[in-house]
Design a protein around this nucleic acid. Structure first.
Length: 169
DNA sequence: GCCAACGTTGGC
DNA sequence: GCCAACGTTGGC
């Protein structure tokens, strides 16, 4: 006997191992990432984006580093997931703009991923470049109203973006 | 700075 | 549980 349910079941999401992570360069840029080599991808405060990092990201996954709210907004580099699904320390830090009074070490609420720098694209691939590319029209980033800061992408989308950027430098 | 398109909150 | 009001994101 199946339980009655008032809500539709979430569609199971199967990761292809490729992601796109957004950051505003004024808050965390690819240049700073390159200098630090590794960072905790903290401050994600959207449940769907969080769930990607908790449920679907795996060590070794790759991602496009995308500058949002930038001049111009563009894919600018590549990174790799080191360790997903970790409690986000910024939620417990009263001085952080991402502090959440409802979070605690027993109940972190928010999670992040440790990620490592792999390289800058030789040339940034602007949002307009991405939109102009027929092969990328289904890419999550380009869908109407899309605002998540952690987005899945397919392997072929990932490879197309890297190629458009002339590879890594 | 504007505003479309979202997500979240809270009164009921 | 509905939904109006509010807040945020991010392109332009």
């Amino acid at each position: 006997m199946t339980k009655p349910t008032s809500r539709p079941k979430p569609i199971p999401f199967v990761s292809t191992g490729y992601w796109l992570l957004k950051s505003e360069p004024e808050s965390y840029s690819i240049d700073l990432f390159a200098k630090e080599k590794k960072t905790l991808w903290t401050g994600v405060r959207n449940y769907q984006a969080r769930n990607f990092m908790v449920d679907s990201m795996k060590p070794g996954d790759k991602f496009i580093f995308y500058h949002s709210n930038a001049e111009p907004s563009a894919a600018v580099g590549v990174g790799a997931v080191v360790r997903p699904n970790q409690a986000d320390p910024s939620a417990l830090d009263k001085k952080s703009e991402y502090y959440d009074p409802k979070a605690s070490s027993d109940h972190p609420i928010w999670f992040c991923a440790e990620v490592s720098y792999e390289g800058h694209l030789k040339k940034p691939v602007t949002l307009q470049d991405l939109r102009d590319k027929k092969d990328l029209e289904k890419m999550a980033l380009l869908q109407r109203g899309q605002r998540l800061s952690v987005l899945p992408m397919t392997k072929s989308e990932f490879e197309a973006v890297v190629k458009m950027g002339g590879g890594l430098k």
